[in-house]
Design a protein around this nucleic acid. Structure first.
Lengths: 248, 248
DNA sequence: CGGTTTTTTGCGGGTTTCTGCAATATTAAT
DNA sequence: ATTAATATTGCAGAAACCCGCAAAAAACCG
């Protein structure tokens, strides 16, 4: 077997599986480990793949994880832009925290005249940049993990609010199990937020679709809008097509 | 499974949920705890995440407020260091906002075990980095100018607190007129904060000495500590040498 | 074609990396 | 203070790696 043939074979494997193991190639190609290693080394030098201990990885596969201080930012901006259409002058909006919500805030129209209640200090700071937006930060214990306020005090204040729209970032959403979460406190918060609002919108990057976690927040039927970065006709969303749930 | 693949998997989990638990990863990836810990350690060394007891947290989520443009930073750090000596384990502290206070928070000892009430979201976020500090953010209307919460709701919550120490940034201080301010809301807030605390400390860069504004917050006699970046024997402070006011 | 050069390959032996285990220390929570 | 969960450290076996060498294969050339 010629060297070129081996290289082509390796590339095929990598395009197929995104990875190869040195040991597998030894068996498949019936050559010594050293030969495989030398092959992989050369191909790495030619920028065709990433060599790692034990094998090699596809270049494209790896590059998606290079540096994303804000993960999936493009997708989140896309979601944010869709969501802004739901927010009209004069509305009272209740929001949670998370990077998706912050992205949304940054996309709001300059002259929006609305009232926002939020449990996230970072969202509050961002909202404060809009001159005509009234911001009410709901106070309470401050969670080190999720950077939001929580606890009984927050719940009781939330329950006194009557908002038009509730915006939630998502931990996980699933066709049958609905909206779920891992953290009990956050679970309670989200439930209360939803019941304090006439309508609720779930902002969800597609990676969080079809995942189910331990604690249930709400059934799909109780959500008004599901907003992802995908086109609303995308096949990944077909299982979420139920009445009363508008997919944007 | 290759090490790199594990790392990528972990990053995905973190970007999705903002945190991972060591024990979960052990199950999901089917390797020993030691391996996961070593992975997390390496990734933390590469600045990809925060490693904490029990797992790891997303880096971007702990984004700090940008302090590169803080005015008179040196002086403020000096003040901060002096102030830390007033804060002891077990104390209940009430703080306002402002860059001086944030600088103070950054100078606190790693293992401080205390409770902080604050009306500043940015201070809350900064405080949340201390594992043993309980943070309660007082909610209410959010002020666009001063980045703190204010209004009747805040006042009424403040008045229910019984703190050991109150930390105030300063607008202006004057030997005869005492602590003064321009904004009526903030004036009210500061008054309430002081009356909710046994002692109060005023953090004040020397530029704000000998200035008097319209609204009086408190007479010098009602302040416990005055902390500036100057030496306590500095001649600029001589007019503030009254009994009951300790100058640091 | 024979001889020379170049490339490729496999092998031995020493080095590094990876991973799980066990013993010990630290932390969190009560 | 006690307990259970989690971390750290050192160690050891296995796997993977690197390097130089030499045989084999291929390419080149007069």
């Amino acid at each position: 077997m010629l060297k070129k043939e081996r290289h082509d074979f390796v590339m095929k494997q990598i395009n197929l599986h995104n990875r190869v193991l040195t040991s597998d190639l030894v068996q498949l190609l019936n050559v010594s480990e050293d030969t495989i290693r030398r092959d992989l080394q050369e191909m790495a030098d030619d920028n065709l793949l990433y060599k790692v201990h034990g094998g090699a990885l596809s270049k494209s596969y790896h590059s998606t994880f290079d540096d994303s201080s804000v993960y999936a930012k493009e997708a989140k901006i896309n979601i944010a832009k869709k969501t802004t259409k739901l927010i009209k002058d004069g509305m009272v909006v209740l929001t949670g925290g998370g990077t998706t919500i912050i992205e949304l805030v940054k996309q709001l129209p300059e002259n929006l005249h609305a009232t926002f209640f939020t449990i996230s200090p970072l969202v509050a700071v961002e909202l404060a940049k809009y001159r005509k937006v009234e911001v009410i930060l709901i106070g309470g214990l401050f969670s080190k993990n999720s950077q939001i306020t929580y606890g009984g005090h927050v719940i009781s204040q939330l329950s006194e609010i009557n908002a038009d729209l509730c915006l939630l970032g998502t931990s996980a959403i699933h066709p049958t199990n609905g909206l779920t979460d891992t953290d009990w406190e956050i679970n309670q918060l989200k439930k209360t937020m939803m019941s304090s609002s006439r309508k609720s919108a779930v902002l969800c990057i597609s990676e969080k679709l079809n995942i189910s976690l331990r604690l249930k927040v709400a059934a799909l039927e109780n959500i008004t809008y599901l907003i992802t970065e995908l086109d609303s006709t995308d096949e990944k969303l077909v299982n979420y097509q139920i009445k009363n749930l508008k997919i944007l």
